[in-house]
Simulated scan of single mutants.
Amino acid sequence: MTLTLAQLQRGQKAIIEDFNVDLIPLKLLEMGCLPGNEVELLQVAPFGDPLYITVNDSHVAIRLETAKEITISIIKENHL
């Protein structure tokens, strides 16, 4: 089963595996949202969109539809 950034739980960390570069805004790429980088879900806004993440030591708000296009592998389970 392929996991996406949209499926990450609050506090979980993951490694970005892949995405379709045509569907990801250039600004996210510039901020380090690239394969191999670690990402952590910090918070989810009311109604589930947007997601507030940290990637490459930057805090980023990302739309849910964009998060669904980024495949990940979880590296740390949520211990909240």
Rank of each mutant, 00 (worst) to 15 (best):
M1L: 06
M1S: 14
T2Y: 02
Q7L: 08
Q9W: 04
R10A: 08
G11L: 05
Q12P: 09
Q12N: 06
Q12S: 10
A14S: 05
I15S: 03
I16L: 05
E17R: 12
F19L: 06
F19V: 04
V21F: 07
V21E: 14
D22M: 07
L23P: 08
L23S: 14
I24P: 07
I24L: 12
P25W: 05
P25Y: 04
L26E: 15
K27F: 07
K27T: 10
L29M: 13
L29S: 07
E30I: 06
E30H: 14
G32Q: 07
L34S: 06
G36M: 10
G36T: 11
N37P: 00
N37V: 06
N37A: 11
E38G: 04
E38C: 09
V39E: 00
V39Y: 02
V39K: 00
E40S: 11
L41Y: 03
P46F: 13
F47K: 15
P50M: 04
Y52I: 11
I53H: 01
T54W: 01
V55E: 04
D57W: 11
S58K: 14
S58R: 15
V60E: 03
A61E: 09
A61M: 13
I62M: 11
L64G: 03
L64V: 12
L64D: 14
K68Q: 15
E69G: 06
I70E: 03
T71R: 08
I72H: 02
S73C: 10
I74H: 06
I74S: 06
I74M: 06
I75F: 11
I75C: 14
K76F: 05
K76D: 12
N78R: 09
H79W: 06
L80E: 13
